[in-house]
């Protein structure tokens, strides 16, 4: 693994507090993920790719934005790896890069309807913007 990838892996592990080496590759996290069909990289791949330092593709993929933060993978992983925390850390690392915001408050009005709860707006801003 080259130095850049090693640093990136370090950063992701630090942000998330996750140790991907605990994973036994059973695939349960991906099997239970409600966004499985929408993802290019699935939860177990996030874990494996972070472990091997193959992180750039994750940072460039849409997959992190398909995670619903439902925590099903966290609860159903037999090894307490907590894959959702890795997805979150990848998302943060991507958004913290220059120009990384996916959404700004100016984009919000276009999404509104009469019933849109504040909860949705604040959640989206928290997820799509550093």
């Amino acid at each position: 693994m080259n130095k850049a990838n090693e640093n990136l892996r370090e950063e992701i592990q630090l942000i998330s507090g996750v140790n991907p080496r605990k994973c036994m590759r059973c695939g349960k996290c991906s099997a239970t993920c409600p966004s499985y069909d929408e993802m290019e990289y699935h939860p177990h791949q996030f874990v494996y790719m972070v472990e091997t330092g193959n992180i750039e593709p994750l940072l460039k993929s849409e997959s992190m934005f398909k995670c619903l933060s439902c925590f099903a993978c966290v609860d159903r992983c037999p090894r307490e790896v907590e894959p959702a925390k890795l997805v979150e850390a990848i998302r943060l690392a991507a958004e913290r890069r220059q120009g990384g915001d996916r959404l700004t408050p100016d984009d919000i009005p276009a999404f509104l309807d009469d019933e849109t709860p504040q909860q949705l707006l604040v959640s989206a801003l928290r997820k799509y913007k550093k």
């Binding site: 409600p34 966004s35 933060s69 949705l120 959640s123």
Partner: peptide
């Protein structure tokens, strides 16, 4: 105890419709 699609409904309404 499964997800409704959560906040992703904002940018992917189809996903939340299915869920």
């Amino acid at each position: 105890n499964e997800c409704c699609g959560g906040y992703v409904t904002l940018e992917d309404p189809e996903l939340s419709r299915k869920k």
